[in-house]
Design a protein around this nucleic acid. Sequence first.
DNA 1: TCAAAAGTGTTTATTCTACACCCATGG
DNA 2: CCATGGGTGTAGAATAAACACTTTTGA
Lengths: 234, 234
Amino acid sequence: MTQYKGQEHYLVAVDCIIFGFDGEHLNLLLIKRGFEPKKNKWSLMGGFVQPTEDLDGAAKRILHQLTGLKGVYLEQLKAFGQPKRDPEERTISISYFALIDINQYKEKISDTYAAEWFPLKKYPKLIFDHDKMIELAKGRLRYKASLHPILFELLPEKFTMPQLQNLYEDVYDTSFDKRNFSRKVLSTSLLVKLNDKDMSTSKKGAFYYKLNKKQYTENFHSFLKFIPNPDHLL
Amino acid sequence: MTQYKGQEHYLVAVDCIIFGFDGEHLNLLLIKRGFEPKKNKWSLMGGFVQPTEDLDGAAKRILHQLTGLKGVYLEQLKAFGQPKRDPEERTISISYFALIDINQYKEKISDTYAAEWFPLKKYPKLIFDHDKMIELAKGRLRYKASLHPILFELLPEKFTMPQLQNLYEDVYDTSFDKRNFSRKVLSTSLLVKLNDKDMSTSKKGAFYYKLNKKQYTENFHSFLKFIPNPDHLL
DNA sequence: TCAAAAGTGTTTATTCTACACCCATGG
DNA sequence: CCATGGGTGTAGAATAAACACTTTTGA
């Protein structure tokens, strides 16, 4: 049996796939890499795991460095470990995906990172296996969102039913019947209707809703079947 | 931004949660650790990631070393990276779970490992965070099996409807109506009924079924809603 | 006054659930 | 011949899907 002695050691990194929703489309936050190798190439935000932090801690730190945000939805996606994935030196990368309210992200938190939002449907070539990570994250997001109310993490505190539907429609690249959609969403009693309206997108105005936090946290792991026939959409 | 130079390097290991079904209960294959630290303590089968292999490759190798099996169902579970999880030296462990046909595992493939099956409901204290890994794997198995036909991996080529139902009942620690259960399973057209019967558990005998491989591989990722009201069972 | 987006209800089809009796055979 | 486990069908309930018209108001 293998012993500790003589075993190879590797760099361990964390890479974050950061999703945001601008009201129209799902977007990805990418950075222009500031050092070699692949300097000035587009990349996921990442960094090495430090001696005193655990993996989730590293992911939170890295996310915070780029966005200034804390308390963000963050979930471990998968560990990537192809020997040659980083040509400089073998690095095991633990990928995470994050869902943030795009409005909370103020442009240029710091000048250290040249970050930019890209539509998920059209983002630049990325270094290493970062494209693979993104495709995997996209699949996972679709999968999970078809069963759990995860997409609310992408919206501001107050949002309207049409906004919510747009989000789902963009994620699944399809369209839903608005009567069935709102009935289904409301039947979960996850939402609280507010008295004020968003007047910015129509003359009639659309009522705002907010999450019922209690219901949300308690029922997060229940199966909610948000999406009709999700099979064909994943 | 962090550079490569001066970054800490860590050991990277793979640990395998190996499930088997003996007809009665779900079981775990554990080994008695052959080296320090924690020599002679029960542990998951694991090993360090070698320079030329990727993570899946390491998991396959480790699984093969213990069971002699190849082509086994194997899925990455989660990366564990608490700084002190291994008191000897910081080690990032990528956990995998495997589903094997318990009959394919011939006792004592080699004398190198003292391996033993334990019921999932009552297994010994394990080293490090291996208990956490197992609990996570159990949850993942239940979750996934409620949506996808994953549990067939635990059965032999030929199995009967009562066997299959026993398996599901043990996994979810509940009982199902056999009429509804078989109707639901058969409606997926995942199974092919054979002409011979298993005469070992009843006088009438129970027909064998086998998987329709084509249907199985094509529909594996579809949602199958195998389990009524899975919420309360996960 | 009309164009544009928001909001709402009903009918039909499908799926799920609960439930009980007959069958085949080895002892 | 009977005890044991295997096999099957149906009716009622719940859920999902398809579908169209009315409301509001700023321009």
